[in-house]
């Protein structure tokens, strides 16, 4: 953990988390603390209150047909979710009045082909953000969600664009925005990606027939 003049906490790994931490370091007064993973104990142990926190959810697992999703994959996603759940609870205890939380997730909550489990957990992330919004009203906290494309959408993401949005949502300039989900994919979700004949995919899936054990 890197700590100096704590003001903003950025949690997560990968290019998006790195770009967000970099933008806060460059543009926002006060220090930036980084954590590679949601860690409730580390958050609780912070010396100072936080003006803002950005959590970048772990990336969704690779695409898998519904019938091919195994228990190990489900258990791993549940463990990640519970880490995030605990971290959000700890964050509400460390956030200064009128502080902001930004959760960077993905668009899976809307549903997607070959990602039923990831979509489910994406929906859970969005719901958590809404609950945090409601529970944080009294302290003037805000919480919002940035929804990125799923990896299988194929277009990728510009981490700097997401960092711009995260900084905006964490700042008082966006104080009218609360409990919202911002789809940050340049409008790609308007394309009807799922309207495609998928019968061949099922023919290739051995586990689509018969019991799994």
């Amino acid at each position: 953990m890197n700590m100096s003049k704590p003001s903003t906490l950025v949690i997560g790994q990968g290019p998006v988390a790195e770009a967000i931490a970099s933008r806060f370091s460059a543009d926002v007064q006060g220090g930036v603390i980084t954590l590679a993973r949601p860690d409730a104990a580390a958050i609780t142990a912070l010396e100072h209150g936080l003006a803002a926190a950005v959590l970048v959810a772990p990336p969704a697992p690779p695409p898998s047909l519904f019938l091919d999703i195994d228990d190990a994959r489900l258990d791993a996603q549940l463990a990640d979710f519970t880490d995030l759940f605990e971290a959000l609870g700890a964050l509400l205890g460390r956030l200064n009045p009128k502080g902001a939380i930004v959760l960077v997730g993905d668009r899976g909550y809307l549903g997607a082909w070959g990602a039923a489990d990831a979509c489910a957990f994406s929906g859970a992330h969005v719901a958590l953000m809404r609950c945090v919004t409601l529970e944080g009203f009294g302290a003037g906290h805000r919480a919002n969600c940035i929804a990125l494309d799923l990896a299988q959408d194929g277009a990728g993401v510009d981490p700097d664009e997401i960092a711009d949005l995260a900084v905006h949502l964490a700042s008082p300039a966006s104080r009218a925005i609360n409990g919202e989900i911002i789809l940050a994919n340049r409008g790609r979700s308007l394309r009807v990606r799922e309207a495609k004949d998928r019968r061949a995919d099922f023919a290739a899936s051995a586990s689509s027939k018969g019991p799994s054990l």
């Binding site: 979710f81 759940f85 899976g108 909550y109 809307l110 549903g111 039923a116 489990d117 979509c119 489910a120 957990f121 994406s122 929906g123 859970a124 992330h125 969005v126 719901a127 958590l128 809404r130 609950c131």
Partner: peptide
């Protein structure tokens, strides 16, 4: 709430 939102997205 999260568990039921997950069921909605799963659906």
């Amino acid at each position: 709430v999260a568990s039921k939102a997950a069921v909605v997205s799963l659906t």
